[in-house]
Computed example of a mutant assay.
Amino acid sequence: MPTTTIRKSLIESFGDPSHVSIVTTEIGPPAANEVQLKVLYSGFGGSDIAMRLGSYPNQKSAPLTTGYSCIGLVTLNGSKSTKFPISSLVGCLSVYEGQSERVNLPEKYLIPIPEGVDLKQAVALILDWTTAYGMVYRTSKVTKGQRVFIHGLSGSVGFSLLTLCKLQGAEVYGTASEYNHAAVRAAGAHPFVYTNKDWMMAMNAIGGAHVVFDPLGFESYDESWDILARGGGMLVGYGGNYNVLNGGKTRSQWPQIAKLLSKNLNVFCPNSTAFFYVNRDQSTFEPELKALLEMLRKGEIRVPIRKLWTLEEVPEAHRMFNKGPGVGAVVIKVANNVNL
Rank of each mutant, 00 (worst) to 15 (best):
R319S: 10
F321L: 05
E316V: 14
Y221I: 00
A291Y: 03
V334T: 05
R302T: 07
S262H: 13
G240T: 05
P304L: 05
E219G: 03
N246Q: 09
N266E: 15
V338I: 12
K307V: 04
L216Q: 08
E223F: 08
V327A: 04
A335P: 04
V244Q: 12
L292T: 00
Y277K: 13
S220M: 09
L265D: 14
L293E: 00
S224L: 13
R297H: 10
N336I: 08
K259S: 14
T273P: 03
G326V: 06
G324F: 04
S272N: 01
G326H: 05
I332S: 01
W225Y: 09
N246E: 13
R230Q: 10
L260E: 03
C269L: 12
Q256S: 13
F276K: 07
I305H: 12
Y221D: 01
V236G: 00
Y277H: 07
P287D: 05
D226F: 01
E300K: 05
T284G: 01
F285S: 11
I332Q: 05
G208I: 08
P325M: 08
D281W: 08
P304G: 05
N204L: 15
A209R: 08
V338E: 15
F218K: 14
W225P: 00
F268H: 13
S220Q: 11
Q282R: 15
A317V: 06
L293A: 00
I206A: 01
K259P: 11
G237H: 03
P287A: 09
M203E: 15
L292G: 03
I227Q: 06
Q253F: 00
G239K: 04
S272A: 09
Q256R: 11
V278M: 09
T284I: 12
V338W: 12
I305G: 08
E286H: 08
F275M: 00
Y238K: 03
G247C: 06
M234G: 02
W309L: 02
Q253W: 01
F268P: 01
G231R: 08
V267S: 07
V211W: 12
A258R: 12
V331C: 05
A205M: 09
